[in-house]
């Protein structure tokens, strides 16, 4: 039933196609990380109209399927926006990035909310301008605790890349499909694809877990010297909860 010779013969092609998958994953992740930060900052804008529009966009993108968004981007929005239509890979990166930036913005938001209010007041008392308050006081404290959650989103984005086969990107799943269209043996090919995804996402998740443990240790060490009351523990507990829900 399971033909090892055939499995070995397609394995090199599948592994080679992982390169495209990784490009899409990391490209989408970086896009989402930057876009998410912008959305999170817009969500803190003093103008309520901006906050409301920001909220609406986030809700809309979050509650509609990535697949449909990819089709919309690839077939209509990007070709009409740019004189030369972007490639499938670029479209995929934009699609993944846009979709997950709305998730990332929530992560940033919880990180920013976890910064104690006294930090804002101190910045104001020291006459820091608004931009400087963000870049040198709030963000350096808000971002590090969000790293494990971001790591989890890297895994989530990695697992979404097979969708890009719908917009003709030749990644691992498309490569498997192509192999099947010659051999008519889906069993080996799809099992291999599944195993590849499992192994890689499991390795990623071990890395994230290590990062989380290290971060917790660092934080408990620093808060031990600071004050016994641990002002940031509430925010961290909330972040950890989010990690568990979305992992």
């Amino acid at each position: 039933m399971w033909n090892w010779d055939y499995a070995w013969s397609i394995l090199p092609d599948l592994i080679a196609a992982l390169k495209t998958t990784f490009w899409a994953t990391f490209g989408g992740f970086i896009f989402a990380a930057i876009g998410g930060l912008m959305l999170a900052l817009l969500g803190r804008s003093p103008i309520w109209i901006i906050r409301a529009i920001n909220r609406l966009i986030i809700e809309f993108i979050r509650s509609t399927p990535l697949l449909v968004q990819l089709f919309f981007l690839y077939f209509y929005i990007l070709p009409t926006m740019f004189p030369t239509a972007p490639t499938a890979l670029v479209s995929g990166i934009i699609g993944l990035g846009l979709h997950y930036s709305t998730y990332m913005s929530e992560v940033y938001r919880s990180g920013i909310d976890a910064v104690p209010k006294g930090q804002w007041e101190a910045a104001k008392a020291l006459n820091f301008p608004r931009s400087k308050t963000w870049t040198s006081i709030i963000l350096p404290q808000a971002l590090p605790p969000t790293l494990p959650v971001m790591g989890n989103y890297l895994i989530v984005i990695f697992k979404e890349t097979p969708l890009l086969s719908a917009i003709t990107l030749v990644e691992v799943l498309t490569t498997a499909k192509n192999a099947i269209s010659v051999s008519y043996r889906p069993f080996e090919a799809y099992t291999l694809v599944g195993v590849i995804f499992l192994i890689i996402s499991y390795m990623f998740s071990l890395l994230v877990r290590m990062m989380e443990i290290r971060l917790n240790r660092e934080q408990s060490a620093s808060s031990g010297t600071d004050s016994p009351s641990k002002p940031q523990s509430g925010g961290k507990a909330r972040l950890n909860k989010e990690v568990k829900q979305q992992a």
Partner: peptide
């Protein structure tokens, strides 16, 4: 296992590969 697999891969596996078993 079922969390680590992408949904699309799982779907293809169930629909196309399981009949071979």
């Amino acid at each position: 296992v079922f969390r680590g697999l992408p949904l699309l891969v799982l779907l293809f596996w169930v629909y196309f590969a399981l009949p071979f078993l």
